[in-house]
Design a protein around this nucleic acid. Structure first.
Lengths: 214, 214
DNA sequence: TAGATTGTTAATCGATTAACAATC
DNA sequence: TAGATTGTTAATCGATTAACAATC
């Protein structure tokens, strides 16, 4: 029930959708494990953790399994999300097709720069002044933060006060927070720095560095 | 010497830069731990892992410490990086200021769409056909992959063959690879899905869900 | 039934934390 | 010196993996 097991559930779901499209109806933990790159023990452990049962002899029925995973992961309803900060990254995320495909909809974006306001756009870009009211009026629970580092904490606090409890944060800093919310940080500099480190070590030593999983 | 300890080194470095700007000259592991949000044991353990020594009574000298961290993390030279896929996300990354600030320079971008080619731009956007030659000619080791899922594996293989050994991958799939390279995946759908899960659990149970660290 | 797979418990592994001797 | 901090070893913790009884 930790973050890793949830991420794996998403991966199982992705793999199962592909396998279903390929015509499979049932699957053994062993094969699903191969498809995702984990052990069969891991698959069965994860499933049992979420009360997902298979058939002792016939493995798991893909349809039923997908249904369970969709329910657990909230895939049966479209998840409304707001985005704050319509800069480079924010604008790209607004246009990004990958979210809609996964049932995640950015319903509105907010920016402090008057030049960026476009209330009539397909995804309306509104003044940050309207943020709290919008979030409350529409009971939004999830936000993407793509503002500059300097204002990220303030934006976070505003969102928190407006009732947001789940965050995807692109600002490269650790947000100070109470613990009744969840914050996933996407720190691009850090990720690249990490890649650079391992490549440099590799260049010097010639030792295999392995494929990162996450 | 695992991925986590390297990521923490980056965080120590960020914190130390701030503390240095605030006027500090020396620091105890205990205080640095507070600044980064880890235990002092963790700080000392990480440092000892990389052969960084302090003074038994006086803690660590910030300047010397930063120098060591910069060397380990490759911060003393500008790191050239190529980007493949100048779509929404790719274009945003090209314009993103955060990389240059951290000594990471996107020296060229590549796209398969003729309309996107701009060889004269500050960050030139070139045809993918020129990719392998450019990478080899300039001894580039790091690449950002921001192409659609459907062509990501093929782009990856091309980059791999051209000599790239470090990847930041935005395509939402697991790249098949030998293990003489390092791939950090940024899967935005997965990260948001994860946030959504925890928020839904929280909404139902009312139990605190905690602040994710990573 | 015999054989194979699940579900779960126990063992292992790795990373984090605590403790404390060395030492400045 | 006395007191406090480092560096490192041992203990703890949590997650992954192996093993196997239950069972279809």
């Amino acid at each position: 029930m930790n973050k890793n097991s949830i991420l794996r559930l998403s991966r199982y779901r992705n793999a199962l959708n592909r396998l279903k499209n390929a015509g499979l109806v049932k699957i053994f933990s062993d094969y699903l494990a191969d498809a995702v790159g984990v052990t069969s023990s891991q698959v069965r452990k994860d499933f049992s953790l979420f009360g997902i049962a298979g058939n002792k002899r016939g493995g798991y029925k893909i349809d039923a399994l997908l249904e369970k995973l969709n329910t657990i992961l909230g895939k049966n309803v479209v998840q409304p999300v707001v985005l704050v900060g319509a800069g480079n990254i924010g604008s790209a995320l607004i246009k990004y097709k990958g979210f809609e495909k996964e049932g995640i909809r950015i319903v509105a974006a907010f920016d402090s720069e008057p030049a960026k306001i476009r209330p009539a756009a397909k995804v309306p870009i509104l003044p940050v002044a309207e943020l709290a009211a919008y979030v409350k009026a529409n009971s939004i629970k999830i936000a993407i933060i793509s503002v500059p580092e300097s204002v990220a904490q303030q934006v976070f606090d505003t969102l928190r006060a407006a009732g947001i409890s789940g965050f995807l944060n692109f600002a490269p800093l650790r947000l100070r927070s109470d613990n009744n919310c969840v914050v996933n940080n996407v720190n691009l500099e850090l990720e690249l720095e990490n890649v650079i480190y391992f490549v440099n070590v590799f260049e010097k030593s010639g030792i295999g560095i392995g494929l990162d999983k996450d």
